[in-house]
Amino acid sequence: MTRRRRGAGPAAGRAGAGQADEYGAGDADGGVEPDYRFTLANERTFLAWVRTGVSLLAAAVAVRQLVPPFSVPYAREILAAVCALLAFVIAVRAYPHWRRAQSAIRRGGPLPGSRLLPLLAAVLAAVAAFTTVLVWAGGTA
């Protein structure tokens, strides 16, 4: 597959280093301008993390506002807080993760691993287990 440069169309007219820097091209990370498809894939991954965060937030609000109270005290509050907290951590980590991946792509090095992935899986498993117990054993108040 041929590697295509980003410089097609008006975007090729990138003059000063200052402008390049603003768009993350003349990065302090150095490296070379990568195949734009890698850049785009990284951008979509960033957006997917943002959407995951927003969805968790919506879940938190829905649990708190729409679900009837369980017999276990503060069960809804705990579920909502855990979801909102996870949403916060994900949203905070999304940009640094994009940046690290971008610099790895530019250097041609291995992509950085993400601790967010196991964290998300573990917390969601815990939330699912807790909810299962609540629904089956707890019942509504």
């Binding site: 937030l57 909102a84 949403a87």
Partner: peptide, 10 residues
Amino acid sequence: LTAATALLCL
């Protein structure tokens, strides 16, 4: 801003 919203939701 997404992170800030999450924080306010807490």
